[in-house]
Write a protein that binds this DNA or RNA. Structure first.
Length: 558
RNA sequence: GCGCCCGUAGCUCAGCUGGAUAGAGUACUUGGCUACGAACCAAGGGGUCGGGCGUUCGAAUCGCUCCGGGCGCACCA
């Protein structure tokens, strides 16, 4: 008997065959296999008969009857029945389900990986904060969601590149330079002369102090030393950017997020890529001069108004290097790019895509993809927290990591649908109790580790356990969870919804805790003991795999 | 005013490309450690899925509309 590890696709194939025989005319109909919510409705259900009722002008139940008669035999299928309006419910044999234990133990860390990506390249750009201050909670959400998404895509068979884009040029950096310079001169933000757009956080003073003390900072393998000259704006700019990039790098390291590539906006200028993009846009005929500025006719590509490319002062708006940057991504061979960013930047989507279309470079209309996360509100003692000492006007990612730890921060920031606003409750994330889902999941893993540690056998023996002994309701539920895991990864990857992993793990942990309370593992009967241990060993493996996708530790003790 | 996102139990949220009786956690009420870790488990109450109309055999899910909340509408990023 061959081991079936993906029942959904297996059944889908069986029904497709039956369909070709029963109704060749509509054999193109997509076969959907779903998991019913109620156990009495079987393990899998197919609604094909109901879909075909109209085109075939027959009753769903008659069609279901015919489909069942034509269904090829399979070792994995125990029973097929018609229910309700014409659902076809399929029951999987327990033997086939029990096979998953061996499957998990053999595949190990690779269990759950699927191949929908087929090794294709995908670039995920996330965080991409301006080097003008420490990372804030919003960047944290971007980091958690983006990193988890990358892990999920990798597990789904994609060849992933993580990229961070630094906007180290432009007006924001001018403001940063000015702010640091003023601090060097001893001017503080409460002084009346402090500019409206200036940065007010305490960290600006740190940068100024470090620059004046001629310290050396290291960022991206480059060493930058403060010149100590209050009047050299260029030196201050250079130093401030390096200083803050290092600071952000340290924030990311503390959050255990790593990038493959860092791209700099300034490099797009020095490499001539911005100029080249402008020339190409002009050549494509979608630009015009008006009021002393150069405009791009983005309205021709779905934007609600045209955009300025070159300002009257001769500088380019951020939009031009953005287009140049994305053209560069395309030329690097990324036919798929996903930009993860805060929803407050959503207006750039239309603009960047319009700019790329205007280039006539053969880039598809909907390229690149976007995942936008909504805003984060931080709550403490039931009240919203809006400021931090260091940054002044916002809560930093570092504040959260220091207060609740890396694991809990990552979990909470990744465990929500990106589309919904997030309330980060510091008290909840900190609580080492049953109301904290992170500990709930980690505790399940630690419990399994503790049981296995007390068992004096060889792990290898678990591979030969008689899994046919696993047939209690608790065991059946866990087997089904293990079977579902690859499907969860597939859905999370196609929907770009990493939060599904977090919910899955909570469900898996819940089923395990129930099992734990209802049964003993280290029993006298050797066969029973091995069977149960092999199951919980497989559960622990899947927990490790899933937690790794979230970037959360799976501790053996806590 | 225009665009994007959201509205599901008191609170925080799931609900996969429409499916059968809408689910968790938390809070509240009860019960379970001389048993592998009680950071756990079991049981109970709690809902016009924001309102309305439509499409469909079938809608929390799709479409339209209204109400409410967030974000964005720069020659800032």
């Amino acid at each position: 008997m061959s081991v079936v590890l993906n029942f959904k696709s297996h059944l889908s194939e069986l029904f497709a065959q039956a369909l070709r025989e029963v109704a060749p005319d509509v054999a193109q109909t997509e076969v959907l296999i779903e998991r019913p919510k109620i156990a009495a409705h079987g393990d899998y259900a197919c609604n094909l008969a109901m879909q075909l009722a109209k085109p075939l002008r027959k009753s769903p139940r008659d069609i279901a009857q015919a489909l069942i008669a034509a269904l090829p035999a399979s070792d994995a299928v125990a029973k097929v029945e018609i229910a309700g309006a014409g659902f076809i419910n399929v029951f999987i044999t327990t033997a086939a389900k029990q096979g998953v234990v061996c499957g998990v133990l053999q595949a190990g860390a690779g269990y759950g990986h699927v191949h929908i990506g087929a090794g294709r390249k995908v670039q995920v750009e996330f965080v991409s904060a301006n080097p003008t201050g420490p990372l804030h909670v919003g960047h944290g959400r971007g980091a958690a969601v983006g990193d988890c998404l990358c892990n999920v895509l990798h597990a789904a068979g994609w060849n992933v590149t993580r990229e961070f884009y630094y906007n180290d040029a432009g007006v924001q950096i001018d403001n940063l330079t000015l702010s640091v310079q003023l601090r060097c001169k001893g001017v503080t933000p409460d002084d009346p002369s402090w500019p409206e757009a200036g940065y007010r956080g305490d960290y600006i003073a740190d940068v100024a102090r470090s620059y004046m003390a001629k310290e050396t900072v290291e960022a991206d393998d480059q060493h930058t030393t403060g010149k100590g000259d209050v009047n050299d704006a260029e030196a201050i700019r250079h130093f401030a950017v390096a200083y803050l990039r290092r600071e952000q790098d340290l924030d990311l390291r503390a959050f255990q997020v790593e990038f493959d590539v860092f791209s700099l906006e300034s490099a797009l200028y020095s490499d001539g890529k911005v100029e080249e993009t402008v020339k190409q846009l002009i050549a494509s005929g979608h630009t015009y001069e008006q009021d002393g500025a150069l405009w791009l006719r983005t309205t021709a590509f779905g934007d609600d108004k045209d955009r300025v490319m070159r300002k009257t002062d001769g500088g380019y708006t951020y939009f031009v290097p953005d287009v140049a940057y994305h053209l560069d991504k395309w030329r690097r061979g990324f036919t798929r790019v996903i930009n993860e960013q805060g929803a407050d930047h959503h207006s750039t989507i239309t603009r960047v895509r319009a700019g790329l279309q205007a280039l006539d470079a053969g880039i598809p209309r909907g390229w690149p993809d976007y995942v936008l996360h909504q805003m984060v509100t931080v709550l403490k003692n039931g009240e919203e927290v809006k400021i931090s000492k260091r940054a002044g006007s916002y809560v930093t990612l570092r504040d959260l990591i220091d207060e609740v730890g890396c694991d809990a921060t990552r979990y909470f920031l990744a465990a929500r649908h990106p589309d919904s606003q997030l309330v980060f409750d510091i008290d909840l994330a900190k609580s080492k109790s049953n109301d904290n889902p992170v500990y709930y999941i980690q505790y399940a893993h630690a419990r399994i580790s503790a049981v296995l540690a007390q068992w004096d056998g060889e792990r290898q023996a678990l591979l030969n356990a008689d899994v046919s002994l696993l047939n209690s309701e608790y065991e059946t539920a866990l087997l089904q969870q293990l079977i579902d895991y690859p499907q969860v990864i597939e859905t999370a990857a196609t929907e770009l919804a990493p939060h599904l992993i977090a919910f899955y793990l909570k469900d898996l942990a819940a089923d395990f805790h129930s099992y734990y309370n209802a049964s003993r593992f280290l029993v006298d009967d050797e066969a029973t003991k091995l069977a149960r241990l092999s199951l919980i060993c497989a559960v622990a493996q899947v927990m490790r795999n899933g937690l790794a996708l979230l970037g959360v530790n799976a501790p053996d003790k806590m």
